[in-house]
């Protein structure tokens, strides 16, 4: 029954105290949140924790959500900012001990190794994951929002609170770095 509700109807139901309606929102937007936090933080418990934190923040802020933007945009905004906060905390915690990129590379190796599909997709996922991990957080955020989530450059600028020109220059550099990373990865095989 709840599956047939629109986002607006679900939000109204949650505001009216129906927690099952929020369960449906979680089911509907898990994919969006997962692709955002895992692409930002690498696979593992940190990304899942950020995903849960995103959903809890969404639940707590639904009263203030007036519907000026689509729910998918609102959820993604929370997810990307939660991921950036996690990266800042991680940087403080770990930068003295070892390189973040190496750590994420290992995470992607483990994640891919646990994937039952070991074909062409396996290599691609691994290469993309590592290429993303090599980007600085601010470039990675732009790449995730634009390339993976498909938001326009203006929407990306709004979500991150930066100028459209900054988004375009970061995007251009991120794409070049990603393409280089992927080329390098496949050349080595």
């Amino acid at each position: 029954m709840l599956e047939t509700y629109s986002d607006t109807e679900l939000i109204a139901a949650v505001k009216g105290g129906n927690q099952r309606a929020f369960g449906e929102i979680v089911r509907r937007y898990e994919g969006t949140v997962a692709s955002t936090t895992i692409s930002m933080l690498g696979p593992g418990s940190e990304a899942e924790d950020a995903g849960q934190e995103t959903m809890i923040k969404l639940f707590k802020s639904l009263d203030r959500f007036k519907g000026q933007s689509k729910l998918s945009t609102y959820v993604t905004r929370i997810a990307i900012n939660t991921s950036l906060d996690s990266l800042r905390r991680r940087k403080k915690r770990m930068s003295r001990f070892f390189s973040m990129t190496d750590d994420e590379g290992t995470k992607w190796d483990n994640y891919i190794a646990s994937d039952s599909d070991q074909g062409r997709d396996f290599e691609l996922k691994q290469a993309i994951g590592k290429a993303m991990a090599s980007l600085k957080p601010e470039f990675r955020a732009v790449a995730v929002l634009r390339l993976i989530q498909g938001f326009s450059t203006r929407e990306v600028a709004d979500m991150l609170g930066i100028e459209t020109g900054t988004v375009l220059s970061r995007l251009s550099r991120a794409k070049a770095q990603l393409a280089d990373g992927l080329r390098e990865d496949f050349r080595n095989e």
């Binding site: 997962a34 692709s35 895992i38 993309i128 790449a143 390339l147 993976i148 990603l178």
Partner: peptide, 13 residues
């Protein structure tokens, strides 16, 4: 590149 990344992005926890 964008299509590839969208297809390969993780979609579940």
């Amino acid at each position: 590149l964008a299509n590839l990344m969208q297809r390969q992005a993780p979609s579940s926890f």
